[in-house]
Design a protein around this nucleic acid. Structure first.
Length: 601
RNA sequence: GGACCCGUAGUGUAGCGGCCUAACACGCCGGCCUGUCACGCCGGAGAUCGCGGGUUCGAACCCCGUCGGGUCCGCCA
C-alpha cells in the first residue's frame, strides 16, 4: 500500500503505510501527519482517545519529526464533511492510526523537503538524496525514466536493435578533449572514454546490423554549462540504406509521440519546419533558432547607405552589415531602459545600439539627424515598423550583429512575454556547410562543422578541392525552443572519400592510418550507405520538464567545477595505485605572479 | 584562461559606513491547543555577517586579495 493510492473506494480497509513525515500538525490531542512516499501523500490522523492502542500511537506520533521514517497501521476513513482536501488525490480520506512504528528517526535536514523551498546549488548537490525527495525533482527523474522507456519501446517496435558499445575505447584527435584511463597492462598507454559511439555505430552498419540504437553515455572533458555536463546521455541511432528524410521522419515521429505521451504541451508546427543554416543565421542570428515567437532579424542591406550616418557607412565599408530587430510596443521605453539594452549589447561585443522608437508623435532616433524623413521611412518600412514599436540596430561584422541580436531577440521576447510555456517549437536545420575555417595558433585550417564522417550533397565531391567551404553537408540538426537537441548526417561510406576528408582536415597519411585506419579498412569490406542521428537526452528531458538546467533532470550531476559534491570526486589516489599504473603526478608549478601578489599584499 | 552575479543563524532573505546589542520567515527546542492540511498561539536557543588584509575614530556595509557556488565567453555539438 502506498501513500498515493488510497481513495474513498478503500474506506473501511485496514492498511499499512510506510513513508516519511512530510508535515506534522500537532493540536495537542489530535495529531495530523502527512506521510509521504514516491507515490503521494496520505494524511494520517492520530486521536489518542479513540482506543487504548491509539493512545500509544499518539505518544509515538508526538515523538515523530520531519523526515522520520514511519510505519503506520490503521483504518481508512472518510474525512469529516467539509474537511476534504481537493488538492490531494487522497484528499477524501485519511488513515486513522492504530499503531505507529518509527522505522528510523532523521536529523534535522539542511533544507526543508518542499517545493517552495530551495537551497543553494552546492547544498542541494551535497545532499542530493534529500533534494531528490522534493516533489519536482522526483517527478523529473520519473519523467526521465518514462521518456527513455518510451524511446526504447518506440525504437524496438520499429526493428531497431540496442547494442552496447565500449566505454573503454580509443582517443581520437577530432572533437572534444578526451577523458583518459591509464592502462595497467600497457604502461604509458591510455584508453579514452567515448565522446559518442560514432565509430562503433558506423561499424555496426558495416556489420549489417541495419538499424541500431543505444541510450549511450558520452564523455567530454570540457567546461560545464547549465545545459552541459561532462558525462551525458544520448539517444544514438544509425540506419543503413536510408536518406535524410528517413532519419528525420523517424525522429520527428518519435518526438511528436514522446511529447504527447509525457507532457501536456502543444507542438507549434507539425510537420516540423525545415530551415537552412543560411536562413537561420539570417533571420535568427544563430543556427538553433527559437521559433516560438517572431521578431526576426532584418538586414538593412543598401538602405544602410542612405543618409550620412557614419556608424552605418563604416560597418558596410568594413565588410560588415547593419542588422536590426523590431520590438513591438517598446517605443515608450525610457532612457534608462534603452541604456540597459545598450549595455547588454555592449557586453556581447557590440559597439552600441542604434535605437529607433516609433512613437505616436513620430520616429525618435539618432538616425533622424543623418537622413531625410523619406529615407528614414524606407528603413522603417524595411523593418516592418508600426507605431509603438522600438527598432534596434547593430552595425558591425556579420558575426557581431548575429551574436548580439539573437540574444537580444530572446531577452526581448522574455521581457515582452511572447513565449508560451505550454508550447514547444521544433524545427530541422539543414544545409550546413561541411567545413568551416578556424584559426588555431595563427594558422587557418579546415574543421568539420559536424564530424568528419558526414557526407556531402551528391555531385559536390569535386568541390572539395576547388571551393571546399561551399560544400553542403548531408547534415540535419533538430532544434527545440532554441536548444540544439540533436544532430546527425548521412555518412561517407567510401574509404577514398573519407581519406580525402581527413587530409582536408589537416591529418597526415600516418595520422589517418593510425587514428582511423580501422574505419577506412572496414569501409573496404562492403560498407552500406548509412546515416543516423544523436539526441541529447538530458536537454530533451529538461525541455519536457520545463527545467532551467540539465542538472535538474540528472540524478547526480556535477557542479560547474566538474566536481561531484556528494561523492567528493575527483579525489587523490594512493601511491600504490599510481605505481600499478606506472603514473607519476606532476602538479603545475605555482606561477611567480601568484607569489608576488602574496608577498606584495 | 577571462567577464559578471551571489556568499549574513540549519534554510531562504532584509540590512549596504554609526540608528546592529544584526532583523524577518521557515526550520529547531519547550509549552498550550480535538479537524488541521505551508495549522494556530506563547516562549526560547541559534550568526566570530565565507576567509585574509586594508581604508576609517568606527566596517556585515567601502577597497584589495582569496576561497566557494552560479551564469556566460573561450572550449564543446
Amino acid at each position: 500500500m502506498t501513500c498515493g493510492e488510497l481513495t474513498a473506494a478503500n474506506i473501511g480497509e485496514s492498511v499499512i503505510l510506510t513513508g516519511w513525515v512530510g508535515h506534522r500538525r500537532d493540536h495537542g490531542k489530535l495529531i495530523f501527519i502527512d506521510l509521504r512516499d514516491r507515490y503521494g501523500l496520505t494524511q494520517v490522523v492520530i486521536d489518542p482517545e479513540r482506543s487504548p492502542e491509539s493512545a500509544e500511537a499518539h505518544a509515538i506520533a508526538n515523538e515523530a519529526r520531519l523526515e522520520y521514517v514511519l510505519r503506520v497501521e490503521g483504518v481508512v476513513v472518510r474525512r469529516l464533511p467539509g474537511k476534504e482536501n481537493p488538492a490531494l488525490s487522497t484528499g477524501e480520506i485519511e488513515v486513522e492510526a492504530q499503531h505507529i512504528d518509527i522505522l528510523n528517526p532523521a536529523k534535522t535536514t539542511p533544507f526543508l523537503i518542499a517545493d517552495h523551498v530551495t537551497a543553494e546549488e552546492a547544498t542541494r548537490l551535497r545532499y542530493r538524496y534529500l533534494d531528490l525527495r522534493r516533489d519536482t525533482m522526483r517527478k523529473n527523474i520519473v519523467l526521465r525514466h518514462r521518456a527513455v522507456k518510451f524511446i526504447r519501446d518506440y525504437m524496438d517496435e520499429r526493428g531497431f536493435v540496442e547494442v552496447e558499445t565500449p566505454i573503454l575505447t580509443k582517443s581520437t584527435p577530432e572533437g572534444a578533449r578526451d577523458y583518459l584511463v591509464p592502462s595497467r597492462t600497457y604502461p604509458g598507454e591510455f584508453y579514452a572514454l567515448p565522446q559518442a559511439p560514432q565509430q562503433f555505430k558506423q561499424l555496426l552498419m558495416v556489420a549489417g546490423l541495419d538499424r541500431y540504437f543505444q541510450i549511450a553515455r558520452c564523455f567530454r572533458d570540457e567546461d560545464l554549462r547549465s545545459d552541459r555536463q561532462p558525462e551525458f546521455t544520448q539517444l544514438d541511432v544509425e540506419m543503413s540504406f536510408v536518406d535524410e528524410q528517413d532519419v528525420m521522419g523517424l525522429i520527428e515521429g518519435m518526438l511528436i509521440d514522446l511529447i504527447h505521451a509525457t507532457t501536456t504541451k502543444r507542438i507549434k508546427q507539425i510537420p516540423f519546419p525545415h530551415i537552412s543554416y543560411d536562413e537561420a543565421m539570417r533571420s535568427y542570428g544563430i543556427d538553433r533558432p527559437d521559433m516560438r515567437f517572431g521578431m526576426l532579424l532584418v538586414e538593412l542591406g543598401d538602405l544602410a547607405r542612405l543618409g550620412t550616418f557614419k556608424v552605418f557607412h563604416d560597418a558596410i565599408d568594413n565588410g560588415g552589415m547593419v542588422k536590426g530587430i523590431r520590438a513591438p510596443g517598446l517605443a515608450s521605453s525610457t532612457r534608462k531602459e534603452l541604456d540597459a539594452l545598450t549595455e547588454f549589447a555592449k557586453s556581447l561585443g557590440a559597439k552600441g545600439l542604434v535605437t529607433l522608437a516609433l512613437t505616436p508623435e513620430g520616429p525618435r532616433s539618432p538616425l533622424a539627424r543623418f537622413m531625410s524623413e523619406d529615407e528614414l521611412r524606407q528603413i522603417i518600412t524595411k523593418m516592418g515598423g508600426e507605431t509603438g514599436d522600438l527598432i534596434l540596430f547593430v552595425a558591425d561584422s556579420a558575426k557581431v550583429c548575429n551574436d548580439v541580436l539573437w540574444r537580444l531577440r530572446i531577452k526581448l521576447a522574455e521581457q515582452l512575454k511572447l513565449i508560451d510555456p505550454d508550447e514547444m517549437s521544433l524545427c530541422w536545420v539543414v544545409d550546413f556547410p561541411l567545413l568551416e575555417e578556424i584559426e588555431e595558433n595563427g594558422v587557418t585550417r579546415y574543421h568539420a562543422t559536424h564530424n568528419p564522417f558526414s557526407g556531402m550533397q551528391p555531385g559536390q565531391e569535386a568541390m572539395l578541392e576547388s571551393e571546399p567551404l561551399k560544400v553542403i553537408a548531408r547534415q540535419y540538426d533538430i532544434v527545440c525552443n532554441g536548444y540544439e537537441i540533436g544532430g546527425g548526417s548521412i555518412r561517407i561510406n567510401k574509404a577514398d572519400l573519407q581519406r580525402q576528408i581527413f587530409r582536408l582536415l589537416g591529418l597526415s597519411e600516418e595520422q589517418i592510418d593510425e587514428q582511423f585506419g580501422h574505419m577506412l579498412e572496414a569501409f573496404e569490406y562492403g560498407a552500406p550507405p548509412h546515416g543516423g542521428i544523436a539526441l541529447g537526452i538530458d536537454r530533451l528531458v529538461m525541455l519536457l520538464a520545463d527545467g532551467e538546467t540539465i542538472r535538474d533532470v540528472t540524478a547526480f550531476p556535477k557542479m560547474q567545477t566538474g566536481q561531484d559534491a556528494l561523492m567528493r570526486a575527483p579525489s587523490p589516489v594512493t601511491e600504490e595505485q599510481l605505481r600499478e599504473l606506472s603514473l607519476a603526478i606532476r602538479l603545475p608549478e605555482k606561477t611567480e605572479q601568484t607569489e608576488q601578489k602574496k608577498a606584495g599584499g
